[in-house]
């Protein structure tokens, strides 16, 4: 694949009162080029006003999530060669827009904090002055290790049709984190954790559309975590 790639990029600055629009940019293709590389080329050489958010450029920080050719993806993790010569880039749905491709994660992270994403322990004294390690078997580790790979990039949240319809829904990311700690043998949160989401806007709102698991770049499978949370509630 050689020649030029056409990027059609969403542009909008709500604070400037302008109308949302799509702008076409032609970017020379090079082997191994990612969508983020293309956007950075645009920002450096064509249009300095383009707003994007990124950091690590290697699929770890989760900063560069955006909708690429109709699906939420990490721009740094998506090769141009797998998309073809025409690439449409939009901000992540379900997150309020800040500007261009940058979205606001405030609500997303407040939902994340609401599920208490830390180990709950009853032994306060041991926490302050630890005397031993918390050992786990391989089997105990496998119950939650998959869900601990989450980088909080927000792709699952933007793909979830339930979040679109019901903004109060915690979303796949927060619920996967909740299950990650619920299933951890070191955690003593137990039923207290389940009560956080066992209500009308919690786990029962998930309709198992599976889009969260499809778009997750880390293989976390939040849909599985949510079904397992339901099983835990139903089986008492």
């Amino acid at each position: 694949m050689e020649g030029k790639v056409v990027f059609t990029v969403f542009r909008h600055d709500p604070s400037a009162g302008e109308r949302p629009r799509f702008v076409r940019y032609e970017v020379p293709y090079r082997s191994g080029m990612t969508v983020l590389d293309g956007l950075l080329y645009i920002k450096e050489r064509i249009d300095h006003t383009l707003a994007i958010r990124y950091s690590c450029r290697m699929g770890i920080c989760g900063s560069c999530g955006m909708k690429v050719n109709g699906l939420p993806r990490l721009a740094c993790f998506t090769q141009v060669s797998e998309l073809g010569r025409s690439i449409k880039v939009e901000p992540l749905p379900n997150h309020p827009l800040v500007r261009d491709l940058v979205t606001d994660f405030t609500a997303f992270f407040s939902k994340h904090r609401a599920v208490k994403p830390w180990l709950i322990r009853k032994d306060a004294e041991e926490q302050e002055n630890p005397t031993r390690q918390y050992l786990q078997s391989d089997q105990e580790l496998e119950r939650y290790i998959q869900f601990s790979y989450c980088i909080s990039c927000g792709l699952c949240y933007s793909a979830c049709p339930v979040v679109t319809a019901l903004p109060e829904f915690p979303g796949p990311q927060a619920l996967a984190w909740l299950y990650r700690f619920y299933a951890d043998s070191r955690d003593q949160g137990g039923r207290e954790r389940l009560r956080l989401v066992d209500d009308a806007t919690g786990i029962w709102r998930c309709h198992f559309a599976g889009s969260c698991s499809q778009v997750c770049p880390k293989g976390v499978d939040p849909a599985l975590a949510i079904q397992l949370l339901r099983r835990a509630v139903l089986r008492g």
Binding site: Q146, Y149, G210, S213, Q214, D221, A223, L224, Q227
Partner: peptide, 13 residues
């Protein structure tokens, strides 16, 4: 749930 295998489909599918 299990360890993540590259390119493997989600277990929920």
């Amino acid at each position: 749930p299990s360890r993540v295998e590259p390119e493997a489909p989600p277990r929920s599918f």
